[in-house]
């Protein structure tokens, strides 16, 4: 059995400060996976180190039975919205077109068929009316949908999204969730860093619960239980309690 993602003994630190300690998990193909945990738990760090965007201290990551470097072009990454430069002179359609770059290689340029495909992906997320807008001239939810369209344009097998639902409208959120579920039903694997616990049980099939260490991993029905969630959010809860006492 080849897993979509298999992680062993993963350790990551920033300048000597440990961010992730001994992470181990296997996730099967065709799952919609939520990576959840409190602020600073290392969710973004996990996603980035899985894709080897930041160096890891130790550990192995295997994707569909291969190394990341062999699979890169088949992995779509949607960054946290706060990481983007929204004043960049690029239109919505050209942003989506970037999704076709990995398959093009260095010297080939996108052709008409790539543009048509990008437009089609834009239609899937309901953003075709905005194709000529500069990306900064959109709402947060619309921006997120455009980046999802870019990921779709890449025809990836593995999708990684960092906090796609932060600060966006409910329509956009529903559209994105619907598309992610469609991708899952087509057999793609989707990893989503997620903050809001209230929807975690309806959105995801599997959960990776994180707080520097792996607290738990497994089907939502097993992980999404108060006594387990407590373990990850404990420090925040005690912090809140202490604050209540002092206030």
């Amino acid at each position: 059995m080849t897993y979509a993602m298999s992680v062993q003994n993963l350790f990551v630190s920033y300048h000597g400060n440990e961010a992730l300690r001994n992470i181990n998990f296997n996730i099967e193909k065709g799952n919609l996976v939520g990576i959840i945990g409190p602020n600073g738990a290392g969710k973004s760090t996990l996603l980035k180190s899985l894709l080897e965007l930041i160096p890891k201290d130790q550990g192995t990551v295997v994707v569909f039975g291969k190394s990341i470097n062999e699979m890169r072009k088949k992995i779509a990454y949607v960054p946290q919205r706060s990481d983007m430069d929204w004043t960049f002179p690029i239109s919505v359609i050209d942003t989506v077109l970037l999704g076709t770059y990995p398959s093009l290689g260095v010297f080939r340029r996108p052709k008409k068929k790539h543009r048509e495909w990008s437009y089609h992906c834009l239609e899937k997320v309901g953003m075709e009316k905005f194709s000529q807008r500069q990306i900064g001239e959109l709402s947060g939810g619309q921006q997120q949908r455009v980046f999802l369209a870019r990921a779709l344009a890449q025809k990836a097998d593995l999708f990684c999204l960092d906090e796609p639902f932060v600060g966006i409208d409910i329509t956009s959120e529903e559209t994105i969730v619907r598309i992610l579920k469609e991708l899952r039903d087509e057999g793609k694997s989707v990893f989503v860093v997620h903050h809001d616990l209230s929807k975690a049980n309806t959105y995801f099939d599997e959960l990776i619960l994180l707080n520097k260490e792996l607290i738990d991993v497994g089907p939502v029905s097993e992980v999404f239980r108060p006594e387990i969630m407590m373990k990850a959010y404990e420090s925040q809860l005690t912090f809140m309690k202490q604050n209540e006492v002092t206030v």
Binding site: L53, I75, D83
Partner: peptide, 9 residues
């Protein structure tokens, strides 16, 4: 525009 994406692919 998006150095993270370019590194990712």
């Amino acid at each position: 525009f998006d150095p993270t994406m370019s590194a990712a692919y």
